[in-house]
């Protein structure tokens, strides 16, 4: 695994909201192809912002982002930059805490929307793969349902299928289970785990301990916009080096 080239390289990333809310204070992160990285940290530590900077949903204030060979530095402007952002977004699928399915489209329409609109595929080409994905997330019987008639767990699984329909190189999960009722968490984590086993590169912000401990290759701990430490999960969970990590882990592992 260590010989593989990095899929994502974040260098000295800063994000300042307004003039004085310094949310990310110089983050460096490398994720190799096929690697599963979980970012942990107290709320407000900048985990989500880091994730959202990777696909430019948040504009980085300083630093650079590289996704699968496409590099963009903060502060660039112009047409070339916009094109690069679109390229990065096509390579990086994202799942949100609140699912954000399109409510006016059925499950299958949600999934083919990206391929039709962004990739310019025909309906005939997009539908079979979308159906395959629906089956893969275990929802082929919900093909023609609108999101409002699906449970939270089902909606999140459709959202994952929607991202996968773009054939992304990396998946970004932004607290995908935080809005779910406890009994629905398992079905979503299960899909994420299968995705990891199939070799998908994943960065996940999640408090789902099973995923962090048993699926992740590496755990990164953040606090107050700073990188605190990282390592394989067994090391981080049993023997954290930093006192802030220890405090945080003691809190969530209780």
């Amino acid at each position: 695994m260590s010989q593989k080239r990095p899929m994502i390289r974040v260098k000295n990333l800063h994000k300042v909201f307004g003039r004085d809310l310094h949310v990310l204070r110089g983050i460096d992160l490398e994720v190799k192809t096929g690697e599963v990285v979980v970012i942990l940290g107290p709320s407000g530590s900048g985990k989500s912002t880091l994730l959202r900077c990777v696909n430019f949903l948040e504009e980085p204030t300083a630093g650079s982002i590289e996704v699968d060979g496409i590099t963009l530095s903060a502060g660039e402007r112009g047409k070339a930059r916009d094109a690069h952002i679109l390229q990065i977004r096509k390579k990086a699928g994202m799942c949100f805490q609140s699912f954000n399915l399109f409510p006016h489209m059925t499950a299958i329409e949600n999934i083919i929307e990206g391929p039709l609109t962004v990739l310019g595929q025909s309906r005939k080409d997009a539908v079979p793969y979308a159906e395959e994905l629906l089956e893969w997330v275990g929802l082929n019987d919900k093909r023609d349902e609108y999101p409002s008639r699906l449970s939270g767990g089902q909606q999140q699984r459709v959202a994952i299928a929607r991202s996968l329909a773009m054939k992304p190189k990396v998946m970004l999960f932004d607290e995908p289970t935080s809005a779910l009722d406890p009994e629905l968490v398992g079905e979503v984590v299960d899909v994420m785990e299968r995705l990891a086993n199939e070799g998908m590169t994943i960065i996940a912000v999640t408090h789902e301990m099973h995923f962090a401990r048993d699926v992740a290759d590496r755990v990164v701990i953040m606090d107050d916009g700073n990188w605190v430490e990282e390592g394989p999960p067994e090391e981080i969970f049993t023997n954290p080096k930093h006192s802030r990590s220890r405090q945080f882990l003691a809190h969530i592992l209780k």
Binding site: L86, R89, M94, F102
Partner: peptide, 8 residues
């Protein structure tokens, strides 16, 4: 955001 994340 969901639309943007798809690359629209």
């Amino acid at each position: 955001e969901a639309a943007k994340a798809l690359g629209m």
